[in-house]
Structure formats: structure tokens, C-alpha cells
Design a protein around this nucleic acid. Sequence first.
DNA 1: ATCTCAACTTACAACCATTGTAAGTTTATC
DNA 2: GATAAACTTACAATGGTTGTAAGTTGAGAT
Lengths: 204, 204
Amino acid sequence: MQEVGLREQKKQQTRAALFEAAMRLFQEKGYANTTVAQIAAEAGVSTKTLFNYFSGKEDVLFAHRMRRIDTLENAFRERLADNAPPQALRLLARDLLDWMSTGEEPRGDINLAQAKLIMSVPELRARSQALLYEAENRLAAVLHEAAPWLDPITAGSAVGALIGAMQGASRAGINRGDSLSDIVGSAQIGIDLVTRGLDQLAQT
Amino acid sequence: MQEVGLREQKKQQTRAALFEAAMRLFQEKGYANTTVAQIAAEAGVSTKTLFNYFSGKEDVLFAHRMRRIDTLENAFRERLADNAPPQALRLLARDLLDWMSTGEEPRGDINLAQAKLIMSVPELRARSQALLYEAENRLAAVLHEAAPWLDPITAGSAVGALIGAMQGASRAGINRGDSLSDIVGSAQIGIDLVTRGLDQLAQT
DNA sequence: ATCTCAACTTACAACCATTGTAAGTTTATC
DNA sequence: GATAAACTTACAATGGTTGTAAGTTGAGAT
């Protein structure tokens, strides 16, 4: 029952063409200097069609991630089936790193370029955080469901702390100009810290 | 040397008039249904003037908070002068709650309305998070500076974890429909959790 | 009190994202 | 092939944002 009709194929082609055109233009001329009309022209469709596929200029970059929040959610659910919450959360952090560094394409170079683009444009960074907020929301619900002895507030805090720590570590790495792989390593430091608690920061 | 010239007074009046007109209209007709032209007309200036005062429609709501990040930063610096990092971080969390619930006006009802407005419009929520990201960035720098034995990654993680936990707790409270004061209480739970570490979540 | 400059404001025009509409095409089905 | 449903398009309109040139006004010097 896989929708393999001509219609469906064309739609996927158009979607991919729009995404690729957008990435190319954003990298060549910058996000702000690229108009929606140019992207559409490059992909060979009308602007209106672009808006039929994506709900806005930003969404061309985020649509795939949005559609993939479920993946993350399901992975966490499975982690929780096999592990106690602290360990499941640690594993979630790993999954999350993968999730964030995977975009529309299986090609790593494009995903890297996309990540850099997002982090360098304030507007897009904000959008990315909003997406993360939505994801955290759902992950907290999953945690509460799988570990009912954790009330919603505690579950929300736990998810927020973990993801916040990762984000904080990443931010520090980005400021320092680290490579993507260094940043992944840094994120691990954040994860460890929040796992054991901030009290360990006391100078002994 | 307080700038008390007529010119300065008028500027502050105009700024306040714009902010108040915006809040009134946003509440009456909703954020999206209010045009910048209407806000300007209500405040008795041209649209262009609005853009001279604020860098955009969103910024009418956020300008004051942006200008006040320094307050938060200085408060944290002072906390760190008198306390070890874990305790300073806990105190920071309190300051942050105040900071977030204080807007342009000293009037509490307006601030509450503003907070609700921001949380209910995705676009504004995203903006709010971006602002928080900026704040975290600077707070992490302050922490690293005051406690040099914490490398930048660890400092970033600590700040991120704390603020992330607070945010997670708040989110849970908001979803549940809690009042603002309940949310403040919930935030405390998040703070405690991250202070002691996620390991305590294990079911014993 | 007046003059002059710099700071502000305004009217106007232009650009671009986004949306609604009506008409034209294409694919899936029978 | 005929027909309906699904898509795409051209076009027009709305609203945020910016640049420009001209008009006002407060501040300081005379």
C-alpha cells in the first residue's frame, strides 16, 4: 500500500527540489538575501506552490525535523521500557544529538551546512529552540507515562535539565568555534554533570 | 546629569504610549489581528516612528527585557562573589523568575497579561526563548569568570541545566493550567532536582 | 528673543513574505 | 477516454520592514 503513484513521486521530487534550491541559495547569498520567489524559480514552481509544500520560508529548513519528532519520542519510549529513568535519559541525550544533526538529507555535509546556517541566523536559531520546546513537551509526557511515580513537574524538570545542559554545553562549544564532533563530546560533559547534580561543582 | 530635557521626556512618552497601545490592542484583538499601523495610530505617531523606537512588531514586547539582561548578569555576578557556584546558581534561578515576570511596566497585571500573551503565541514564545538563550550565554561567561576552575563547557552546562530545568518545570505547570504563583513553586522543584542530580530519579 | 544645527518625525515609495481566489492542468479511476 | 479529485498557477491584496528626502522641533549660542 506504499503510495507509489506518479502523483506522489512528483510531490516528493518537488519537495526535494525546493529544499535543495533553498539550501543552495541560502549558502550562496545568505538567508535574508534569498527571496522565496528565487527559491521557487530555482525549483521550477510558482511561489504559491512553495507555500503549498511548506508553511513558510523557515519551514523549508525545519519541516523534516518537525515530521521526525515522533522518531525521537518512540526511541525514548523504548529506552524507558528497558532502562531506569536516569539511564533512559542519558540514552535519550544521545538520540537527541543524532536527531538534531540529521536534516532532510541523508548526506552529512548538507546536514552540517544546515546546522551551521541555523545556528548563525538568530531567527532560525529561535525557531530551532521552539521546535526543541515542543519536543521536550512530548518527551516529558512520555517520561511521566512510563514512570508514573514521577509527577509531571519532576518529569518536565528532568527532561528540561538534561536538554538544557546539552544545549548549554553545545553553546559553549559553538562560541569556542569547535567542530561538530567536538560539540558532541562536550554535550556528554553536560549530560554527566546533570546526571550527578550541580552540587558537585563546589570547589573541594 | 540625568537627561531630563524636553526631548528626552517626549521620547520616553512616545515609547510608553507605543507599548501601551500595543498591549491594549493585542489583548483586544489578538496579536496577529493587530497591525503595526494600528498601534502607531493609537499612539499618535507614524508607523515609521514605531520602527524607529522598536526594531519590529515583536520587539515592542521584548525591548525592555532585552535592555534588562544586564541586571540579571550583575545580580549573578554579585551572587557569585558571596556564594559557591551551586548556591549562586540556586539564587540565580530566583532572580531569573523575577526577571521573566517583569516587563516594561511596574504594574503586575500588565506583566501577567504580557507573560500570558507571550506564552500563547508560538512566534512570541520562540522569541522569548531566543532571549533566554542570549541571557544564558552571558551568564555562563560570568560563571566561568568567577569560578575559573570550571571550564567553559562545564559552566555552560551548569547554567543550561538549571535554566532548562526551570523551563521544563514551568512548561509542565503551564500545560496543567497552573497559576503564575504555582508555576514559581514548580520551578523550585526543578531547581532542587538539578541541584542534586538526575540519579535520584531511580525508583528505590 | 532669535538663529542654527542636530535630532526626530513624517509622507511616500518599494520590497518581500504570506494568503485567498478563481481558472487551468494533471493524475487516478471507472 | 471521461470525470472527479488533486495540484499548480497567475493575480491581487494585506501587512511587516526599510530607505529616502523633506518638514519640525528642542537645545545651545548670540
